[in-house]
């Protein structure tokens, strides 16, 4: 096993007929870590991952997977890398257990297919044809096939999209286990909770670039939030005067207020807010203390408008 990082992408550019899907993306992922790639639809997550998997050639920039070139060194790389596509990839009439037994025969030291079925709650569906599996079962079978060859690095493209809570939990446990065992996991996902829970490193991607990266706790920082509800149209300028410098106050939607401070919310802040409310005869309801989440950061960086 070489010492090269799991993934090293520098200035990756990928264009499709005029549109630029990936626009100078730079990213590094370490071994034995879960690296989450977060981004809205069309941000370039799948294109980036598929370039690393050797499906597409970069138009510019370099990609090294386990120190190797995904296209030129494909033969050497394929057994070392596990791939789970966003969907499909399995013949429709093959049975779940049969598929894993065939995939196991492709590798020198595979995992036991029966053990994998058991781990992912698929034992009862071992004799079911792929086309008759539920969406969640198909996803889990795809995940099982990605890890059966005991790869050093696994690419998972939205592995829990559309899964029920039990399936999602089983998937998370497996990803956690892979990392503990020393496998690098690259996880493209929409789910902030998933990234916050699983990832050692997060890269937020938008318009084909990394707009923020780091460990989740560092990304969200220590910023604190105080939310409350009251009558609409309070004088926020007046409220801000009563608060420590650097604080922000917003009303969105009407009657829902958010006070944000750079440090944690402390008793003094609550006292200041409630004192101001008392002074103005305002009854603050549902007062809540929160810390900034990855989702707040994500929406801040990528905008709140809907993407098609």
């Amino acid at each position: 096993m070489s010492n090269a990082p799991a993934l090293e992408i520098a200035g990756l550019v990928k264009r499709y007929r005029g549109t630029t899907a990936v626009d100078g993306l730079t990213l590094r992922a370490e071994r034995a870590q879960v690296t989450a790639i977060l981004g809205p639809n069309g941000a370039g997550k799948t294109t980036t991952i598929e370039t690393c998997e050797g499906y597409r050639k970069a138009d510019a920039g370099t990609v090294r997977v386990l120190g190797l070139d995904p296209v030129a060194d494909a033969r050497e790389l394929r057994p070392k890398v596990g791939v789970m596509l966003q969907s499909g990839g399995v013949p429709t009439t093959v049975r779940a257990g049969e598929y894993l037994r065939v995939m196991a025969r492709f590798y020198a030291h595979p995992l036991d297919p029966a053990m994998l079925l058991e781990t992912l709650g698929l034992t009862g569906s071992a004799r079911t044809q792929y086309k008759q599996l539920s969406g969640g079962q198909k996803q889990r079978l795809g995940l099982a096939a990605a890890v059966i060859g005991r790869p050093e690095l696994v690419f998972l493209d939205e592995p829990t999209a559309g899964l029920d809570p039990q399936s999602r939990h089983a998937t998370w446990q497996l990803i956690d286990g892979l990392r503990t065992a020393g496998t690098a996991v690259i996880l493209a996902t929409h789910y902030m909770e998933e990234a916050e829970r699983l990832a050692d490193q997060v890269a937020i991607v938008d318009h084909g670039r990394v707009v923020a990266s780091g460990p989740p706790a560092e990304l969200t920082g220590s910023a604190g939030q105080l939310r409350f509800q009251a009558e609409a149209g309070l004088d926020l300028g007046g409220l801000l005067v009563a608060l420590p410098p650097g604080a922000l106050a917003k009303e969105s939607p009407a009657g829902h207020y958010l006070v944000e401070v750079t440090d944690r919310v402390d008793p003094q802040l609550i006292a200041s807010v409630t004192a101001w409310c008392a002074e103005h005869g305002v009854l603050a309801r549902d007062l809540q203390i929160e810390s900034r989440t990855l989702e707040d950061l994500f929406l801040e960086l990528t905008g709140r408008e809907l993407r098609s």
């Binding site: 096993m1 394929r78 057994p79 070392k80 025969r105 492709f106 590798y107 020198a108 030291h109 995992l111 060859g149 005991r150 790869p151 050093e152 497996l174 286990g177 892979l178 503990t180 065992a181 020393g182 496998t183």
Partner: peptide, 10 residues
Amino acid sequence: AWPAPAPGAA
């Protein structure tokens, strides 16, 4: 107890 990576083609 998850097994460590042991890649290799058959």
